[in-house]
Amino acid sequence: MPRGDASSALITDVLEEYGSATREALFEYIPSGEPRESLYDLCADYPRRGGRAMRPSLCIATARAFGRSVGEALLTAVSIEMLHNAMLIHDDIEDESEKRRGLPALHVTEGVPIAINVGDMLTLLSLRPLLDNGERLGPSLALRLLEETERMGRESAEGQAIELGWRRDNPSDVSEADYLLMVLKKTCWLATIHPVHAGALIGTAGRFPSEPVLRFGYLLGAAFQIQDDVLNLIGDEARYGKEIGGDIHEGKRTLMLIHLFEHATQGERDRLHQLMAQPRADRSAKDVQWVYEAMLSYDSVGYAQRFAQGLAGAAQYEFDRLFGSLPDSRDKRFIASLPAWVIERS
């Protein structure tokens, strides 16, 4: 089997194995009592739809790479997955997204008020596994993981605020650096930094330094986000699970849009600025198509793909510095394969 295929198979296997374990444990944390139809059944909706389970798998794999058991990292992984799903529900409302994991978004089927409440409940439910960590990991480490979760939640909310502010204020001078900072906060903390750091803390009884993880997680997470934005334009909707072109429709500031703003003619920039200033409902399919064609015309999509490749390469470098001294294991190879995987996935 070619090396790339072997890596891909490894990633698929690990995601499936740890994702299943996480989901199984997650459902134990969702109450089965009333109100079910307007709350608890809906808390299980997004988790039941599947998803890659990259975040919990990364947490478990990191702890395993340090020699710990799946069980020692499982509750933290559950908390991460719960919080991720809670944030997805709220993000879908804030972004006015229509689809999630191939199905209508929760607020589309249940209405915004109920979806907000479900997201709130999932956020609260995500605390319980962290408290239960005390029994397995001891109070010091459990508290540390709780604090790290609080930090991650704060960074994510700040990142989301930056992006929502851009959509409200419609600035035309958002730079690559602004975008990367937003992604660092909004995406990387929850997607990669926190899962790896939590796993490393579990693996070292709370003694693993934050900074090297932050660097690796940031580069990996940013490559992941940019590729995600690319897939939003050129991906297969059935596999991607969201509406293709949705980011343009939502007016999201992506690397492609920033690149387009920088390279378009003045007339095109004016039109783009005007389009982005409109409410989402006023942005027509024709408008979205025009933006998309312009992005292709200026090679903004190709630029973003190359940008993501650069970040993935840097992430690979940081991985070697961070985990190189650990003994070889399936979990270490899984993490090592992620930088290439995030930019190759379709």
């Binding site: 334009l233 050129i234 072109g245 390279h263 399919a285 090679d299």
Partner: peptide, 24 residues
């Protein structure tokens, strides 16, 4: 909400214009 389908295509199927680096 958007209802009509968008006709997107692969990035590699288009030629880049001036301003941006060419794919490949």
């Amino acid at each position: 909400m958007r209802t009509s389908a968008l006709a997107f295509r692969s990035a590699s199927s288009s030629g880049a214009r001036n301003g941006g680096p060419r794919d490949g």
